[in-house]
Computed example of a mutant assay.
Amino acid sequence: MKKNLLTLDVALSKEIKYMLKEEHYLPGDKLPSERKLAELFHVQRLTVRGALNLLLQDKTIISKPRSGYYVAPKRILQSIRNFSLHSEEYSGQLTYELYDFKKIEADNYLASEMLLPEKSKIYKIVWLYSDGTQLICINTTYIPEYIYPDLTQQIAASAPAIDLITNNRQITLAKSNQKVTLLYADTKTAQILNIPVDSPLMKYKGLMYDKQGHLAVFFENNMLIDRFGFIREVVL
């Protein structure tokens, strides 16, 4: 019996996918209720629920408590070659806002990560990225003072840190070391991203170097785990 029920769930999930495509549902569009889907496909609501769970698992749809099911937003593609964000849905046009800017001294953690002497002067810049509907990423970038000696908050607010370095300072980023790990949102991160504490996130961090091998940037991104994917190259 379980095998037949599972087969029906899978078949119905494919039918719902086909419906979404043929009826031109867009990311963010709401699906019909479980009751209406059951009537439309002439199946029991239990079968509909199983099919919807399969679509939740493969990220075709998302569920909003006390609201219903919606077509999932497309993932933001993070290029590991040109360090930019790109989305099919938003054509790379993500919005960003400067959240914090300060000049600090490297503590033990930053000195170890950036291979700099402790108390080295560095800039800490925090950006909040949004896809137009919600905050999806907290980007924290650290720039050694020697890379951009006259950096100010006004300058930092004009463009993301990578653009400031490559365009304003004419520095070519030649190589990088990058790493993706799983973490769980602490209280502050959860408040900023408006998610529950201990929600799973991707931590994407890395070091970027110029042609001479000098460290130019150390970054740490806390990213919504269901909104990002990684690619080797973005084709524009």
Rank of each mutant, 00 (worst) to 15 (best):
S120M: 05
A72M: 13
S112R: 13
Y99A: 12
D58L: 10
S112M: 06
Q78V: 04
G92M: 04
A106E: 06
S91Y: 10
K119S: 06
F101Q: 11
E113I: 13
K64S: 01
E88V: 00
K102R: 12
I104S: 04
Y90S: 07
T60K: 06
E88T: 01
I76N: 00
R81I: 05
I125G: 07
N82P: 01
I122L: 15
V71Y: 11
I125D: 07
R81P: 00
L85P: 01
S67Q: 14
P73I: 02
K119W: 06
N108G: 11
K103F: 08
K64A: 00
L98F: 09
S91A: 09
D107K: 09
D100E: 15
P73Y: 12
E89S: 03
S120N: 07
D107Y: 10
D58V: 06
R75C: 01
T95W: 04
E97D: 07
R81M: 04
Y96R: 13
K59H: 15
I104G: 01
N108K: 15
S84P: 00
L77M: 08
S87K: 10
P73C: 03
Y69A: 01
V126M: 13
R81G: 01
P117I: 10
E97Y: 13
E118G: 03
S87F: 07
N82H: 13
A72D: 11
G68P: 02
T60G: 05
S87A: 06
N108W: 15
Q78H: 02
F101R: 13
A106T: 15
I122S: 10
N82G: 04
Y70W: 09
Y99D: 14
L115K: 15
Q78A: 02
S87D: 02
L98Y: 12
K119E: 07
K59L: 13
K74R: 14
G68A: 04
S63P: 00
N108M: 15
L110S: 09
Y96W: 15
D100G: 08
Y70Q: 03
E118L: 05
I62N: 05
S79L: 07
K121L: 08
I80T: 14
D58C: 12
R75S: 03
S79A: 09
S112Y: 09
R66M: 11
L98N: 10
T60P: 05
S84I: 07
T95P: 00
D107G: 12
K119I: 01
F101T: 09
Y99R: 15
Q93A: 04
K103V: 09
Y109N: 10
E105A: 10
L77C: 02
L115F: 10
K103Q: 14
K64Y: 03
N82A: 05
Y109S: 06
K59W: 12
P73T: 04
M114G: 07
R75I: 00
T60A: 11
P73K: 08
I125H: 07
Y99P: 02
A72W: 14
S120G: 05
K59C: 06
K121S: 13
S87V: 02
Q93M: 08
E113C: 10
S67N: 05
P65D: 10
K74I: 02
K119P: 00
Q93T: 03
E97N: 11
E97V: 06
Y96M: 08
L98I: 06
S120A: 12
L98R: 11
